[in-house]
């Protein structure tokens, strides 16, 4: 049986993204703790340098796949180039990060390779020489253990679930560069735009008071603002759900598709703690969460947990603050 594990690297601005090293770490676990069966593929325009760097850092063998049509990510071009290559290797696993590139590519690639596809993997179990994969359901309220039943399996790994891979400093992986031509594709990636939102206020604040769907109605933002008012320098953040209903603008959104923040204090009010939200607050020093649901996932990352209805709790805090602390 073939036991090659392929990692498809994600990179930007000439360097591998951190999630690439996390995917390699996951591959190393699948490989039994080392990098002997790992082959990292770096598709792109000029990726030989990135490949060298990955091979140096992790000790894994790396193939840079360079070619026309690969400069910007384009699902169709990537699949065209990777399909043939992967059909030859017949890897046991193909590992990608669970990012906007990874989850775009993985399912369609799996269809082409007649592989199973397991997304957002957070953990691997090993039993009787078999691997099973643990992934969340219902925003982490529940987990599923999934077993593939195909020769090849494509998995995407949740960012942050593995620590970045490091190899032994004396063993550098082999690097080879191959050229590929994606030919003409129907899909055309025109450019990458960076968001126009000015998010500096959030990313530079020491204290962020953040609102979730649990505030119930737009009017309750005044509670959040009043609470923010008791701190010297604070900013208002929120979950995506709050932006989607139009209560706050997207520049306030914290999370993978919003702003990544690292304040000294993050106070989450009525936020359930979806993985996409929580990934954005990993750098916070102290997290306080207020939620009516004692099982809310936000409590698994919070330092101080308050199981209360924010409509009663925030006024109680404001009242006690006025009584005890304001001079």
């Amino acid at each position: 049986m073939n036991d090659t594990i392929v990692v498809i690297a994600q990179h930007s601005q000439g360097a591998a993204d951190p999630v690439t090293y996390e995917a390699i770490a996951c591959a190393m676990e699948l490989c039994g703790g080392d990098n002997s069966c790992i082959r990292v593929i770096v598709p792109g325009k000029q990726t030989a340098d990135i490949a060298e760097k990955i091979a140096g850092t992790t000790g894994a063998d790396v193939t840079a796949v360079e070619g026309k049509g690969l400069k910007l990510y384009n699902a169709e071009a990537y699949i065209k180039v990777l399909e043939g290559f992967l059909k030859d290797i017949k890897p046991l696993y193909i590992v990608l990060p669970h990012t906007s590139t990874g989850y775009d590519l993985a399912p369609a690639l799996a269809v082409k390779l007649k592989a199973s596809c397991i997304t957002a993997v957070e953990k691997i179990n090993h039993a009787d020489g078999k691997h099973t994969f643990i992934r969340p359901l219902f925003n982490g309220r529940l987990y599923a253990e999934v077993v593939p039943e195909t020769e090849s399996t494509v998995i995407t790994v949740q960012p942050g679930a593995w620590h970045k891979a490091v190899g032994s400093p004396d063993k550098k992986g082999r690097v080879n560069v191959i050229t590929a031509d994606a030919g003409s594709t129907k899909t055309r990636t025109i450019s990458i735009k960076h968001s126009e939102y000015e998010s500096a206020a959030l990313s530079q604040s020491d204290v962020i008071i953040s609102a979730g769907r649990g505030i119930g109605k737009k009017e309750n933002l005044s509670l959040i603002r009043e609470l923010a008012g008791i701190f010297k320098r604070s900013a208002i953040g929120c979950s995506r759900a709050v932006c989607d209903v139009g209560w706050l603008g997207y520049r306030h959104q914290v999370g993978t598709t919003g702003v990544t923040v690292s304040p000294k204090l993050y106070l989450a009010c009525g936020i359930s703690g979806a993985i996409q939200h929580v990934s954005g607050i990993k750098g916070a020093q102290t997290i306080i969460a207020v939620n009516t649901d004692p099982h809310a996932r936000i409590f698994s990352v919070a330092d101080y947990c308050v199981v209360e209805d924010l409509e009663q709790f925030i006024p109680a805090v404001l009242e006690a603050y006025g009584r005890l602390y304001s001079e």
Partner: peptide, 9 residues
């Protein structure tokens, strides 16, 4: 995309 980027396609 992640980190407030958008791919125009």
């Amino acid at each position: 995309c992640d980190a407030m980027r958008r791919e125009c396609v």
